[in-house]
Each structure stands twice: as C-alpha cells, then as structure tokens.
Amino acid sequence: MKRGDVICPQCNAGFRRIELASRSGKPGEFRCPLCDQVLEVFDGSTEIAYRITVAPEKLFE
C-alpha cells in the first residue's frame, strides 16, 4: 500500500491518496469534486482511492 497527499492546483483542496497494488482497479480519472480539475488519470492496474483532507480557503469566505 502506498499513501500520499495530492493538492489540487486549481482550488488548493487537499486529498489523501491510497494505492493498493494487491488489487486491480478500473481505468479512468480522478477529478477534484470541488472544481472539476483532473488530478490523475489511471490505467486500472492498481486500486486507487481519494479522500478530501483539506477544504480550499474559498469555502470559508
């Protein structure tokens, strides 16, 4: 299992990224649910999950 953090370059939302090499996933892409920016395109060779950890500052204005 690999863990890491991803920051959306458009709205600065933060996400925790977890990749499981022991499971295959589905090909596709992950878009920021807040601004629709593409953050990653994946081929389905591993299972990848994202969870928002830091909301962008503009949500608090």
Rank of each mutant, 00 (worst) to 15 (best):
K26I: 14
L20E: 14
I7Q: 06
E57M: 01
R51L: 04
C35T: 09
K58H: 07
F60Y: 10
D43F: 08
K2A: 12
P27W: 07
G4K: 11
R17D: 05
E57N: 02
S22K: 10
D36C: 11
I48P: 02
D43T: 15
P33G: 09
D43N: 15
T46W: 00
V54M: 03
L59C: 10
C8V: 09
R3Y: 10
A21S: 12
C8Y: 05
Q37H: 13
G25D: 10
F42T: 05
A49P: 00
C8D: 08
F30V: 06
V6P: 00
D43R: 07
E19W: 00
I18C: 02
E57Q: 03
V6W: 02
R23F: 14
P27L: 13
I7G: 00
E47C: 09
E57P: 00
G4M: 09
E57G: 02
C35E: 06
A21T: 11
L34D: 08
D36S: 15
L39T: 03
P9N: 13
P9A: 12
L34R: 13
S24M: 14
E29H: 09
C8S: 10
N12R: 09
R17F: 02
L39G: 04
C8K: 03
D43M: 07
Q37M: 11
I48W: 03
K26C: 07
R31W: 00
L34G: 03
P56V: 00
A55W: 07
E61F: 11
L34Y: 12
A55F: 11
G25K: 06
C35G: 08
K2I: 12
R23L: 15
E57C: 01
S24G: 10
V6D: 06
V38F: 01
R31D: 08
A49H: 14
K58G: 00
N12T: 07
N12K: 11
R16M: 06
T53L: 00
D5S: 13
E40Y: 01
A21I: 08
A13E: 01
L34N: 11
G25W: 06
G28T: 08
D36R: 15
C32P: 03
F30E: 04
E19K: 06
E29N: 07
D36T: 14
V41R: 13
C8R: 02
Y50P: 05
E19M: 05
P33E: 10
R23V: 11
F60Q: 06
S45D: 06
T46C: 07
E40L: 04
R16I: 07
K58W: 04
F42G: 02
G25S: 10
N12C: 05
E19G: 00
